[in-house]
Simulated assay, not measured.
Amino acid sequence: MRTEPNPTRLDRVFARLDREPERPAHVSVPGMSRHRVVLFSATLGFYAAIVVAVLTTSWLVRLDWQVMFFRPYQQWPELHAYLDYYVVLGQRGPTAVMVAAWLGWRSWRQRTLRPMLTLGMSLLLLNVTVGAAKLGMGRLGPHYATVIGSNEMWLGGDIFPSGHTANAVVTWGILAYLAATPRARRYLSALSAVVSLGVGLTTVYLGTHWLSDVLLGWAAGLLILLALPWFEPLVARAERWLFGLRDTWRRRRAAAGAPASTAPVATPDPADGPPPVRIPGPAQEPATPETVGAPHTGRAQPRPAPGGHTPRPDRAPGTPVGGRRGTHHQERPGHGTPPAAVPAGGPPGGTRP
């Protein structure tokens, strides 16, 4: 009997995914157009200008100190409780979970892994670029500043550029990047710009970042979004590899669950008797069970006649005199041999049995 393997939860997920509609044909992959190249170059120049302005302790550093001494959280204390929650929209963990849930549902509906892989690629680029800049320049924040008017660079800090701001630009901007229609892309671009702008200004209000940190964070996040089309071929190769791995796993599961043979096994009928014994050889002739000890001649032995058995000889030829059976034992007559006559006078010795 053939038994089907019990489907696992992953099998049910793939089966449900196979019943969804195919990937929409109108979903286009953004390319690195000339307009995007110009924007990327301008943003890169803005990024470099911010870094140079801070390193040279220019007017931007003086503006940072002025905003810090203004202390916005003391000017508008009623906003503090609300902005403490709003700034969470720039934290990497909560925002990544929320955006991944939405993009995961889109991947399910469209039968493609591109949204999830693009999100993973953007977060990887964000960690590498922004993290390297933070550790490389080591700027201290407003709460830990040591010298008034200095740029606080290379003192072991990690706030330049602002990670909250860059994360808000990338995480919410990826929704606009992956939008299916131009109209949705425009609306989501405006929404992500407002959210990231608000997160950056909230960090300045709370006093955790300089204003120049926020400006550099906006530029760092926008550079990642503009550079994503260069990584689309890598995302496509990763998607093909993952789907190929899934198909290989499915084939192995199907091969492991299939029975070894599906041919029916014949059940012997008790009325037919025992199966015949076949002797290997060129001519397959039926043979009957042989007598134990009889020489094998290659053909069937004749059956004994009914009504008695052939008496066994007293001793096999060539049996030595001092054999296992003593000479004082009288040989028992064979079955069917008439008993010997007893003399009228009784057995020898005059004693009657």
Rank of each mutant, 00 (worst) to 15 (best):
Y85L: 15
G273S: 01
R92A: 14
A193H: 02
P72S: 11
I279C: 00
P304I: 14
H309E: 08
V170Q: 01
P276K: 02
P94S: 10
T3A: 15
R9Y: 13
A145N: 03
Y144G: 02
V52I: 14
P30F: 06
W241Y: 05
S196F: 03
W65M: 04
G156L: 11
W102L: 15
A266V: 10
L44Q: 02
A168Q: 05
N6R: 14
M153L: 15
P229K: 09
R325K: 12
S150P: 00
L119R: 00
V13F: 15
L123H: 07
H164T: 05
A238E: 01
R315Y: 04
P161F: 05
G318N: 08
A344V: 12
R23Y: 08
P274S: 07
G93H: 08
L126T: 12
A179S: 14
E152M: 11
A263C: 00
K134L: 03
G207A: 04
R2G: 09
V54W: 06
Y177N: 02
P274F: 14
G104D: 02
N6Y: 07
Y85A: 12
G149N: 06
P302M: 08
P276E: 07
Q330I: 14
I159S: 14
G308I: 07
P24Y: 04
L44D: 00
A96H: 06
T203Q: 09
P274H: 06
P302I: 11
G45P: 00
A96R: 05
G334S: 05
E22A: 15
A145S: 13
G298H: 04
E285L: 15
T267H: 11
D272N: 10
V130A: 01
P289T: 14
R9H: 12
M116E: 04
N6C: 10
M153I: 15
S33V: 02
R16I: 06
L63E: 02
P21E: 08
L178A: 04
P276I: 13
L225I: 12
L211W: 02
L226V: 04
P259E: 04
G120Q: 03
A168S: 11
W241A: 15
G257K: 04
R312T: 09
F69M: 08
R237H: 13
W76R: 14
T337M: 12
V67T: 10
R109F: 04
V194E: 02
A283P: 00
W241R: 13
S107F: 08
A180F: 00
A220I: 04
G45C: 14
N127L: 15
G104V: 05
E20V: 07
R139C: 08
M98W: 08
P304M: 15
T8N: 05
R16H: 10
A100M: 11
H296A: 11
V204Q: 00
V194D: 01
P24L: 09
Y82G: 12
E152N: 13
G163N: 01
D314A: 14
Q110M: 10
P275N: 03
A283T: 13
P24W: 03
R324W: 08
H309L: 14
V292I: 12
G149H: 05
A15C: 03
R62D: 09
A266M: 09
F160A: 02
V265C: 05
G307P: 02
R250S: 09
R246V: 15
T208M: 04
G207M: 09
P77F: 11
L226M: 08
P333M: 09
L117E: 01
H35R: 15
P304S: 12
V204S: 01
P286D: 11
A287W: 06
P289A: 10
L117A: 07
A133R: 00
